[in-house]
C-alpha cells in the first residue's frame, strides 16, 4: 500500500503550493451524534422497505384476493374465446355448404344409417344434376326442352345397380 509520504511527494512535484495547503485545511464540522442518528434513520428506512416487501409476500388475504381476481379474469377470458370459436364455426357451416362429393363420401362412410329410399333420393338428385350439366354443356342455347330431357333420360338410363362397384360391393 502506498504511504502518505509517496502521495505528498507526488503532489509536491506537481503542485508545491497545494501540497503545503493541505495541512492547513479546516476540518468539516459535523453535528453531535450525527452518525448515531444517521444509522437509526437509515435502518428505519430499510426496515420500512423490508416490511412492505414482506407484507406483499406473506399477507394471505392479499394472495386470496389476487387468486380470485386471476380466476375471474381467466373465466372471462375462456368464455370470450369459447364464444368467439362457436360463432366462427357457425359461420363456417353457413358459408360453406358441403359439396356433393362430400355428401357422397359421408353417405359411403355411414351407409348403414341411411334407408334405401334416402340413398335413392340422393342418386336421383345426382342424376338430375348430371343431366342438367350435360344438357347445359351440350346445348348451344344452354336450355333443353322437356321433350329433349325425356329423350336424353331414355337414351341414358341410370340404375341403382350401376352405382355399385362390383368388386368392392360398395355404393358409388
Amino acid at each position: 500500500m502506498e504511504n502518505n509520504k509517496e502521495i505528498l511527494d507526488e503532489l509536491n512535484a506537481v503542485a508545491p503550493l497545494l501540497n503545503s495547503l493541505k495541512k492547513e485545511s479546516s476540518e468539516v464540522v459535523i453535528p453531535d451524534n450525527y452518525f448515531d442518528n444517521f444509522q437509526t434513520s437509515v435502518c428505519s428506512q430499510v426496515k420500512e422497505e423490508r416490511t412492505n416487501v414482506v407484507s406483499i409476500k406473506r399477507n394471505p388475504f392479499r394472495i386470496i384476493k389476487i387468486g380470485i381476481a386471476a380466476s375471474v379474469f381467466l373465466a372471462i377470458f375462456f368464455l370470450v374465446v369459447h364464444f368467439k370459436n362457436a360463432n366462427n364455426q357457425a359461420e363456417i357451416i353457413v358459408k360453406t355448404p358441403a359439396s356433393s362429393t362430400e355428401i357422397q363420401h359421408y353417405i359411403t362412410e355411414n351407409i348403414n344409417d341411411f334407408t334405401v329410399e334416402e340413398v335413392g333420393q340422393f342418386v336421383a338428385m345426382q342424376t338430375n344434376n348430371k343431366i342438367q350439366t350435360e344438357a347445359i354443356t351440350t346445348s348451344s342455347n344452354a336450355v333443353m326442352t322437356d321433350e329433349e330431357i325425356n329423350q336424353f333420360v331414355e337414351n341414358n338410363p341410370v340404375y341403382i345397380s350401376d352405382l355399385y362397384d362390383d368388386e368392392t360391393a360398395t355404393i358409388f
Binding site: 452518525f35 444517521f38 437509515v42 428506512q45
Partner: peptide
C-alpha cells in the same frame, strides 16, 4: 459511514446534502 461522509462532502460541500447522498448510498447498498 465516516469515510464515505467525508468523501461525499468533498463533492457537495455542505452537511445537509452530504447527509442526503450518504443515505441514498447506504439504501442503494441495502
Amino acid at each position: 459511514q465516516r469515510k464515505l461522509y467525508f468523501h461525499i462532502f468533498r463533492f457537495v460541500n455542505n452537511h445537509e446534502d452530504t447527509n442526503d447522498v450518504l443515505q441514498n448510498t447506504f439504501i442503494k447498498v441495502w
